[in-house]
Design a protein around this nucleic acid. Structure first.
Lengths: 148, 148
DNA sequence: TAACGATTTTTGATATGCACAATTATTAAT
DNA sequence: ATTAATAATTGTGCATATCAAAAATCGTTA
């Protein structure tokens, strides 16, 4: 059966890709003197967004208490600003500092650069099918996760 | 520029795929009562293979000391057997027990099953381009990691 | 308006994941 | 025969993460 062979190949590929992508994230975080958690947290910021602790925790799939400490680190390093939300003083308004904004932009740029480098090694005719296929893969994966 | 747009899209896709694949691994490990590390370790065993501590550590990209403890766990749960290599008594011969072998087979089967399910949601004409494109992506990623 | 319950964050305690350095056992080399 | 090299383990320390409890604030309702 063709389907089985493709499934097997796909299983091995996503397994290897996962490991390599993780390694890539570690390297990138290191380069910028951030812990992995801090790196991931910054990556999840839209460049001019303001959110509260809990929202970030949900995005990162971590507990709010964990987030408090990650943000502590980022505040210490002066990448983000944390202030009490005047509308609801229980909330914290978490925003990128200007230093943070430029880093996020730089990170995003580097992230895209890497993938541009990668694409250079792939036949341009395959760029379109690659991205659309990956979109489908992601969609299907999300569906699988949702139902289990 | 087309290339830039594709690079940007690809960057976002791999970012999301990474998160989802991680979540998938967590779920699978949980289902079988294993920690993520134990799960990954078992996944890396050929079903009738015998290797030593160090080799596994290299495969998993972890320190030998970490591996000692992961294997401790798997020995306790009776999935693998650890014995001194008679040819070189410094080495440990690590092998799957029969219980371990059947679990690994089951895990591999489940892993492939998931990806078959995922492929069912994707147009069969796209299966071939998807896997070859992913192969290229992986190759390019490995190359990038190697040179930095 | 005073009191109660719900919500957001923080803090303290605790558990796990992981690497590094030191230690032990063994082998290979001079 | 002694020394150097190698494999695994153990001790230690830091990063990661959760949970429970506490503190502050808000909304509701008696």
């Amino acid at each position: 059966m063709e389907l089985n062979q493709h499934a097997e190949k796909l299983a091995n590929l996503t397994f290897s890709l996962l490991a390599n992508c993780q390694e890539k994230e570690v390297r990138l975080a290191e380069i910028h003197g951030l812990t992995q958690a801090e790196f991931r947290c910054l990556r999840l910021f839209g460049s001019d967004e303001t959110v509260n602790n809990k929202k970030i925790a949900e995005r990162m799939n971590l507990s709010p208490s964990r987030l408090t400490r990650i943000i502590d680190g980022l505040v210490n390093k002066e990448y983000i600003i944390r202030e009490i939300d005047p509308n609801d003083r229980r909330n914290m308004r978490v925003t990128l500092s200007s230093k943070g904004q430029s880093l996020v932009k730089q990170l995003n740029k580097a992230y895209v650069d890497i993938h541009r480098e990668i694409l250079k090694d792939i036949d341009p005719d395959q760029h379109e099918p690659l991205t659309t296929a990956l979109e489908h893969l992601l969609e299907a994966l999300e569906k699988w996760l949702a139902k289990s």
